[in-house]
Each structure stands twice: as C-alpha cells, then as structure tokens.
Amino acid sequence: MAEAKLINPYPKGLTEVEMRYCPGCTHGTAHRLVAEVLEELDIIDRTVAIATVGCSVYAYEYFNTDAVQAAHGRGPAVATGIKRVQPETVVFSYQGDGDLASIGMAEVVHAAARSENITIIFINNAVFGMTQGQMAPTTLLGQKTTTSPQGRTVEAAGYPIRICEMLATLPGASFLAREALTTPARIRSSKRSIRRAFETQLAGAGFALVELLSICPTWWRMDPLEAIRHVEEKMIDYYPLEVFRDRLAEEDEGGDTNA
C-alpha cells in the first residue's frame, strides 16, 4: 500500500481558528492564497494585517500575523500610518467592496495617489454581505439586493464602480490586477497577482491592489456552483479580468532595453 504523502499542508500564514464565513464563500480561498504567498515570500514574521469592517472583520484572528482592526473603510489610511513608522514591515489591508468601494473610497484613492508602499486585497462580491445583502457600489445593474429588491437601476443608484479601472488613472498605482476566485486556473492566476502585489511592496515600488471577484451564495440567493457561474457569465463581463498595471514588469522591460 502506497504511503500517503501530504502535498498541500495547512499554510503557516493562517491560524487554526475556525473561520466564520458562510458555506461556499470564497473568503476562505482568498485568505489561504494570501497566507501561502506570505509563507512563500518568507515574510509572515514581518507582516501586519489590517482587518476592516464587513464579513472579514475577524481577519485578525485568521491571519497568523500581527493585526490592527481599522474603522470602516479606513484600511489604507491605517496601513499608511504603520508603513510610515515601520518601513521594513510588510503591511496589507484586506477589504470588501462595502468597505473599500463605498465608505472607504476616499482612503483607497488617496493612498494610491500618494503611491503608499502598501498592498490591498480587495474582495468584490457585489453586495454588502455582513449587514445582510444590501446594494453595494459594485452591485451589477439589475442585481436584486435587499435595498434594490426589484434590481439595481441606473435611475435609482447609478452605475457600478470599476475600482481597478478608476485607480489605473492614477500614476501612483503601481500594481493593479483583477482576478476571479472561480475555477482552479483562475485561482492560480489570483495567487500570482497576490504574490506580485506583495513583491511590488517588497521592492518599494508603491501602491499595489488585487481585486478578487468573489461569490456570496447567501445574499445572492444561489448555491455556490450557481454563484460561480454568475461570476463567469455576468460579473466578468462588467469587471474584465486583467493586469492593469505592473510597474515591476515595466521596469524590467525598461532595464532590458537599456542593456
């Protein structure tokens, strides 16, 4: 009988606290990818996580790092403060769309404008999850939520905000990518972008943000597979998956040209 071999152990970047996310939620996947990257880059011991407000409010219990709980939306400002005092510390904030794209829009825009040397993991599931499924700035047109029970309309709530495209207008944003936590291939791609976002910070290259299209089976009123199909068929159409900016790569290319 062949000896069993553990090929994918529990990542050291996570604690063993049981997560409180709903069944099927992709927050757990995102947490694991971040944890694996912290371990692979060997930076767990010098990383500070910023937990914000929303379903991921308990992130400080799950990441095996020091952590600060920020007020709603203020993750990038809190990360700025830590990074300015401890430039050698790796600082990342983990924010949902209710936090980053809504109440905290000013903070993320200005952190990008200043090109703060921080990393932001941005979970976009197009709904306010923790407060029970209200419309978010990222909610798709026609999407039903508890505050848009007939579906979001342009007349009542305008258009959904594309964060990466908006931040890409700012020269201070050094790494910007949108990925989706749906298929194995896309999850591997998500991890590559998360890694790149931390490498950008480690290189001192400035502001890095990875947007992860995620599912919310509970408040989308779908089972997880249906929710994944919804991302593939509807969300990606409005939120294209793309690396919008990769300054490290641009610099590499520039270096080659000069050589």
């Binding site: 407060t131 209200q134 508890t146 029970p149 009542a156």
Partner: peptide, 28 residues
Amino acid sequence: YPITPSTEIVQTFAQFVADGEVDTNFVA
C-alpha cells in the same frame, strides 16, 4: 447607509419603497 443593529429599519423601508407603498425618494 447600513450599520448593525439598525440596518433592518432601512432595509425593511427599502422594500416599502420598491413595493410602491411610500412616495419616498430613497438614496443608498
């Protein structure tokens, strides 16, 4: 803007708006 534990007030009211039971201009 929603916040626990008052969220349900505006959420319930948003349903009244959607159902046409009030004339309120509701802004999220």
